[in-house]
């Protein structure tokens, strides 16, 4: 059985690149039983979303900061 260390690595990799069926099954089965890896899965997706949002907002953020300084 893959460990949490290995499963979270596969979860991260899957955010960037399509995982293969074996990897998806391993992750899917593991997170059914493991709360912490399930949390890691949703949180790493959230972090990706936040990073994209941060990037979209960076221009406005910098313009605001420049005005203040």
């Amino acid at each position: 059985m893959p460990s949490c260390r290995e499963i979270t690595f596969l979860i991260s990799k899957g955010l960037d690149k399509e995982s293969n069926l074996v990897e998806r099954l391993a992750v899917g089965l593991h997170v059914l039983m493991c709360d912490r890896c399930r949390n890691y899965q949703t949180q790493s997706q959230f972090i990706q979303k936040a990073a994209h949002r941060y990037s979209e907002q960076l221009k406005d953020r910098l313009e605001k900061n420049n005005k203040l300084s």
Partner: peptide, 21 residues
């Protein structure tokens, strides 16, 4: 992670991440 590959501590459940955005 601990040496056996299990979480050391590890993710707790986050309350309403969408609201944080």
């Amino acid at each position: 992670f601990m040496s056996n590959g299990h979480w050391n501590g590890g993710p707790s459940t986050w309350n309403d991440p969408e609201a944080a955005l």
